[in-house]
Design a protein around this nucleic acid. Structure first.
Lengths: 207, 207
DNA sequence: CAAAGATGGTACCGACCGGTACCGTTTGAC
DNA sequence: GTCAAACGGTACCGGTCGGTACCATCTTTG
């Protein structure tokens, strides 16, 4: 029983925050739905803001772990794995409790960029972009550093669109765009491309 | 003086709602910053929800008008106008009061899909998608019906990314992706492509 | 100039917000 | 079996929420 109160608070709060928004859910609500006493809550967390940060940190960890295992689960060759991210997203979008990205939602709700919640949310996105970067590098893309933020933009676009439309269709749409992006011919006039050409000579194609 | 109270309420509320969020801004705040008396407010609006809907409707109208004139202002040939949308967005992102898309933010804050605010926000996005569709059709794209929602996904992705990163760079990123998308070679195996081939024969290339 | 209507200001309402203090009970470790 | 720690429940705090009622003032219209 001892450790459970904190755990129950975290899971209950996460569900409610995600489903209805952080501001929209009061402490009282979390207490009654989790069955935790008021005093116990303030024994485990310094306040609601603390709980919010803790919830988001946990979700960040689990969300990225979920994406990794989902992409791994498709058992694809490295070249096809970046696009598989959108197949994973599609599964997520289809869930009937889908309500967008908890971290985007947090950045929208917590307008103050300096707030702890806002920063945790921002860091989550950086971490995911990093993951996309490794997927692209492992796929043998010289231009992984430019592609990663572009794919991330597509991921966020897909999430917002799915929230708006209420269907998982946005995932296949984003995947189609991503495919066009990955098929893009490098522009020889792009100075970044010149750098990559030089790099390829140096490394001899070894990654 | 008579008509001004309503106008002041709308503009003040729009600024505050956009900057800090709808839930975060109380009626009291709107009254004090607009200098309107409490009774006057409830004479013009049935309540806060009513004000929210009215604010969003006005913003929808003005935002779309802004986009139209911005794109027109570049004075480009029809084929280049779809991509110009992202140049317009870039201007928007650079403003220091930029805080994302008021309508996305509203859909995030008003979790209830049936709420009036949520629906106004959803309709806004449909209207913009429609506008993109006409831009693409005027550019001579047979596949405008598929491209429009794809561009819309890029627009929303760019907005969210710009909010997250705090710089207008996301606009040029999205534009780059859109360029790759528009350069995409049609897939002859796609059944929609077969339809378009037949259509081209029928119309003889006349739009 | 006078009547009518819109106005800003204030007091007030019940409800809920996040947070504190104290209660008696339950639990797990020794 | 004992004891300390964690627990659930409740009462209470000041503050704010959205909304109503009433007031004196000001502007406009006729």
């Amino acid at each position: 029983m001892a450790v459970r109160a904190r755990e129950r608070l975290l899971t209950t709060a996460e569900e409610l925050f995600y489903a209805e928004g952080i501001r929209a859910v009061g402490v009282e609500r979390i207490l009654s739905e989790s069955g935790v006493g008021r005093a116990s809550f303030y024994r485990h967390f310094t306040g609601k803001d603390d709980l919010v940060v803790e919830v988001l940190s946990g979700r960040d960890e689990r969300w990225r772990e979920w994406l990794r295992t989902a992409v791994d689960g498709y058992d694809l060759p490295p070249a096809d794995r970046p696009l598989a991210v959108f197949d994973a997203l599609s599964e997520r979008f289809a869930r009937d409790d889908f309500r967008g990205c908890a971290f985007i939602n947090t950045m929208v709700e917590a307008a103050d960029r300096d707030s702890a919640a806002h920063q945790v949310a921002a860091e989550h996105k950086s971490s995911v972009t990093e993951y996309l970067d490794t997927l692209l590098a492992d796929a043998g893309r010289d231009d992984h550093a430019e592609l990663a933020p572009e794919l991330m933009l597509l991921v966020d676009g897909a999430i917002v669109t799915a929230l708006r439309e209420g269907t998982p269709e946005a995932a296949v749409r984003a995947k189609r765009i991503a495919a066009a992006l990955l098929a893009r011919q490098p522009d020889p006039a792009d100075p970044r491309e010149a750098v990559r050409r030089r790099l390829r000579v140096v490394t001899g194609g070894i990654r």
